[in-house]
Measured scan of single mutants.
Amino acid sequence: AEKTGIVNVSSSLNAREGASTSSKVIGSLSGNTKVTIVGEEGAFYKIEYKGSHGYVAKEYIKDIKDE
Score class of each variant (00 low, 15 high):
23 S>Y: 05
29 L>I: 12
45 Y>L: 06
50 K>Y: 10
8 N>M: 12
9 V>T: 11
66 D>R: 10
18 G>K: 13
32 N>K: 08
27 G>C: 12
66 D>G: 10
16 R>W: 15
63 D>Y: 10
55 Y>I: 01
48 E>L: 15
9 V>H: 10
14 N>R: 10
3 K>I: 10
43 A>Y: 08
41 E>G: 01
19 A>W: 04
11 S>C: 15
48 E>G: 01
59 E>K: 11
16 R>N: 08
36 T>I: 13
18 G>Q: 13
30 S>N: 11
23 S>A: 11
20 S>C: 09
11 S>K: 12
35 V>L: 03
23 S>W: 02
16 R>P: 03
40 E>N: 04
63 D>F: 14
51 G>W: 03
16 R>V: 06
32 N>R: 08
20 S>F: 07
7 V>W: 01
56 V>K: 00
12 S>E: 10
53 H>T: 10
43 A>M: 10
4 T>Q: 09
33 T>A: 08
52 S>N: 09
54 G>P: 01
33 T>Q: 10
44 F>I: 01
31 G>T: 11
46 K>P: 04
67 E>G: 12
27 G>D: 02
24 K>F: 04
55 Y>L: 02
50 K>T: 04
51 G>F: 05
53 H>S: 06
12 S>V: 11
40 E>F: 05
31 G>N: 15
17 E>W: 07
6 I>H: 06
35 V>I: 08
55 Y>K: 00
9 V>P: 08
67 E>H: 12
65 K>T: 13
38 V>K: 05
49 Y>L: 07
46 K>A: 04
48 E>A: 09
18 G>W: 10
57 A>S: 10
14 N>C: 15
20 S>D: 12
29 L>G: 00
7 V>A: 04
1 A>H: 14
13 L>A: 13
62 K>D: 10
24 K>W: 03
15 A>W: 15
60 Y>P: 02
27 G>P: 01
16 R>T: 11
24 K>I: 07
65 K>G: 08
24 K>M: 08
14 N>S: 11
26 I>F: 03
26 I>W: 01
31 G>R: 14
26 I>N: 01
28 S>K: 12
43 A>I: 10
36 T>H: 10
22 S>I: 09
21 T>K: 12
60 Y>T: 04
49 Y>T: 01
10 S>K: 13
46 K>W: 07
43 A>R: 08
33 T>V: 09
21 T>G: 09
58 K>M: 07
59 E>G: 05
40 E>R: 03
67 E>I: 14
41 E>S: 08
47 I>M: 01
17 E>I: 08
35 V>R: 00
56 V>F: 00
11 S>I: 12
53 H>Y: 15
8 N>V: 12
11 S>Q: 10
51 G>A: 05
18 G>S: 14
43 A>N: 13
48 E>H: 08
13 L>H: 03
27 G>K: 03
51 G>E: 07
1 A>E: 09
32 N>D: 09
48 E>S: 07
65 K>P: 09
20 S>L: 06
56 V>W: 00
13 L>K: 02
18 G>T: 12
53 H>C: 10
42 G>L: 03
32 N>E: 07
39 G>N: 02
17 E>S: 09
